[in-house]
Simulated scan of single mutants.
Amino acid sequence: MKKSIILFFVILFLFHSYQVIHAQEMKSYSKLAEMKDALDRSNVTVKNWSLYTKGSIGFTEDVNGYRQQVALLKNAAQGFKWSRMKSNEHFKITGVRFSASGHVKERITLVAYPQKGKLATYLVYAAKGKGWNENVVLPFIRTYHDRVATYFEGKSSTFSCISGIHNGTMNFGLYKQALEIMTTFSAVPVEQLKEETFVSISAYTKQWDEKINTAHKAMNLQIAIRNQGMGGQTAVTIGTPIITSEY
C-alpha cells in the first residue's frame, strides 16, 4: 500500500513537471511567433531568432569545486565541443553545438567568480536559429526547455529575441515604425532613444507575464531599428523582456 502511494506521488510530480515545462515551451514559442508576426506586418524578413537562459548555480569552495561542476555539466550536455577553461579574475568554459541541419547553434557557458571567500557560479545557455521555419523552431523550443530543466537546478530567466531585414524604404521614419510595431503588442513606451539612424524603444505589454524593473517602470518588450545608410538595409530587432547582446 505504501509503495502504491509513493508511486502515485512520483507520477503526480512527473506529470506536474511535464505540465510546467510544456507551458514554458508554449510561452517561448508564442512570444517568438508574435514577434515574427509583427515583423511580417512591417514587411521585414526574419534573419534569425534566439533564446537565452541565465541562472545562478550557487557557490563552490574553490577551483576544484568548479572543475567538478564543469565535469557534471559536460556529462549532462552531451555533444558539445568545449573550449579550454579560461582563468584570470574568474573562471569560464564554453561549449558549442550545431544542429544536424546546421540551422541552430547552441552555446553553454559556466562562469565562476570570487565572492565572499568562495566562488559564485552561474550558467548561460543560448540558442540561435537561422531564418524562420515552424517545423524547425517549435520542435527545437521543446528540446531547449527540456535541456533548461536538465542544466538549471534553481531559478532561471529566459529571454526571446528575433531579428530581420527590410530591404526597401520603410513607409514611416524609424521612430514611427518602432511605434507601429509596439502597438501590435498593445504596449506602452517606458524609455526611448532616438538618433538619426538608430531608434530603441523599451515598453510594457500586459500580454506577457514576465517583466523587469527599470529606474522608471516595469518593462518586458524592446524594439530596435537601425538604418544601414543610403540605399542600405534596415535592421529590426524585437526582444522580451530585453534585447540580449551577450549572445
Score class of each variant (00 low, 15 high):
55 G>R: 08
142 R>A: 14
143 T>Y: 11
35 M>A: 02
191 E>A: 10
9 F>N: 12
37 D>F: 09
177 Q>I: 02
81 K>E: 15
155 K>E: 14
41 R>L: 13
152 F>G: 03
102 G>A: 02
139 P>V: 07
171 N>G: 13
121 T>S: 10
113 Y>S: 15
58 G>N: 04
151 Y>D: 07
211 K>R: 10
21 I>T: 13
105 K>M: 14
50 S>M: 11
214 T>D: 13
64 N>V: 03
55 G>S: 07
53 T>C: 13
49 W>M: 06
52 Y>H: 14
217 K>Y: 15
4 S>A: 12
178 A>D: 04
119 L>P: 06
15 F>P: 00
111 V>F: 09
96 V>A: 08
226 R>E: 15
198 F>L: 11
173 G>T: 13
227 N>L: 05
101 S>L: 11
93 I>N: 01
134 E>T: 12
207 Q>L: 09
108 I>V: 14
188 V>K: 10
56 S>Y: 06
117 G>F: 06
82 W>A: 04
112 A>H: 09
26 M>C: 00
5 I>M: 11
234 T>C: 00
174 L>Y: 10
113 Y>C: 01
54 K>C: 10
205 T>D: 09
139 P>A: 07
22 H>A: 13
221 L>H: 08
124 V>H: 02
220 N>V: 08
54 K>V: 15
85 M>L: 08
234 T>L: 03
11 I>Y: 07
20 V>P: 05
78 Q>D: 12
44 V>M: 05
164 G>A: 03
172 F>G: 01
92 K>I: 04
237 T>S: 01
160 S>M: 12
68 Q>K: 14
201 I>R: 00
69 Q>D: 14
222 Q>F: 05
230 M>C: 02
243 I>G: 01
99 S>D: 08
125 Y>A: 01
62 D>G: 00
164 G>W: 08
141 I>N: 08
108 I>S: 04
239 G>Y: 05
1 M>Q: 13
154 G>F: 14
50 S>K: 07
247 Y>P: 10
150 T>D: 14
13 F>D: 06
196 E>W: 03
115 Q>V: 07
201 I>C: 01
121 T>L: 15
119 L>I: 14
151 Y>P: 08
76 A>E: 13
35 M>D: 07
57 I>S: 06
199 V>Q: 09
38 A>D: 03
206 K>T: 14
196 E>G: 05
128 K>C: 03
217 K>L: 15
54 K>W: 01
131 G>W: 13
36 K>F: 03
204 Y>D: 02
208 W>N: 08
220 N>I: 08
202 S>I: 12
77 A>H: 06
221 L>R: 04
97 R>E: 13
29 Y>I: 12
39 L>M: 06
100 A>R: 15
11 I>P: 00
95 G>F: 02
66 Y>A: 00
144 Y>N: 08
99 S>T: 09
236 V>Q: 08
112 A>P: 05
24 Q>H: 09
238 I>C: 06
60 T>H: 11
47 K>I: 05
20 V>R: 09
203 A>R: 00
181 I>G: 01
161 C>T: 11
21 I>Y: 03
68 Q>H: 12
53 T>S: 15
87 S>L: 05
172 F>V: 09
34 E>M: 12
214 T>S: 15
184 T>C: 02
212 I>F: 10
178 A>F: 01
190 V>N: 03
167 N>W: 08
11 I>Q: 04
